[in-house]
Nucleic acid binder design. Structure first.
Length: 116
DNA sequence: CCACTGACGAGTG
DNA sequence: GCACTCGCCAGTG
């Protein structure tokens, strides 16, 4: 089951992020947002899954371990991939949320920075 | 088997 | 926009 979730997450291109609900829906598991989080929680740190590209609906890193190395690492990785955070520590989903329809060919296209 | 918990989300006040 | 509640399903004790 988680494999389906992991598969979707691995489809998220660098420089973009997806929400838990979005991942669940794309995995064919609508309403399983919590399970997605649960699945990521169970992921080993050395996993090949880009779990750092998954944030909650507010565009915020949801790790409850707040302040722990985990969320800092996630943010650092995202910034390294070109994702920006606002002063509130959130990601402007308007500009960085992954749009499968738009990247149907597996090519996400260019990130429209400068729009903000 | 029952109850509680959890990297969440949508709805309501 | 923020705080609170209910619903979600799987794991764990």
């Amino acid at each position: 089951m988680w494999e389906q979730i992991y598969a979707v997450i691995q489809k998220v291109p660098a420089g973009y992020v997806a929400t838990y609900g979005q991942i669940a829906a794309l995995a064919g598991l609508p309403g399983y947002a919590r399970q997605v989080g649960y699945a990521l929680n169970a992921l080993p740190e050395n996993s090949l899954v880009p779990w750092h590209r998954v944030v909650n609906a507010k565009g915020k890193i949801s790790i409850r371990s707040g302040g722990s190395a985990a969320d800092l690492r996630q943010r650092a990785r995202l910034e390294a991939e070109g994702v920006e955070f606002d002063a509130q520590g959130r990601i402007p989903l308007e500009h960085f949320q992954w749009r499968p329809e738009r990247s149907f060919n597996g090519n996400p296209g260019q990130i429209d920075l400068g729009s903000q």
